[in-house]
Amino acid sequence: MPNVTMTVNGKKMSGNVEPRTLLVQFLRETLGLTGTHVGCDTSQCGCCVVHVNGDGIKSCTILAVQCDGADVKTIEGVANGDELHPMQAAFREHHGLQCGYCTPGMVMSALDLVKHNKNPSEPQIREWLEGNLCRCTGYHNIVKAIKAGAEAMAKARP
């Protein structure tokens, strides 16, 4: 079985995987990082979004072997110790989640959005969430949370 090594949330991690092992399986089953969820397994829902070399991607649609040597960030690597990231704090403040299943993917996609657009408008946020499905909230509070989170991030490091 191929051995893969990647930097996950700042730490070097290795493991043996079958070529067909998906990144999300490696993260959840080998590394025990179960914050990344599998909602659909058909590349539609975005619950599994993580950052690979800085880009938001669906970890159910990439092989672990393809990420050998990559820099991966999951929801577990977003907070600063016990202190929530401004985007996570905004989701709590604005009630941007109900069951929470979609939330890790929503937060990772939101952070990818801010990378492309520091001050996104409401329509831009809604369009960005095309690939993130939520069965609970009706999106309204998620959109509010992302707007507030982006503003808080801009204030935190002007």
Binding site: G56, K58, S109, L113, G131
Partner: peptide
Amino acid sequence: IGDPAVRNR
């Protein structure tokens, strides 16, 4: 095309 995560790959 698709959504942002699809366009990133």
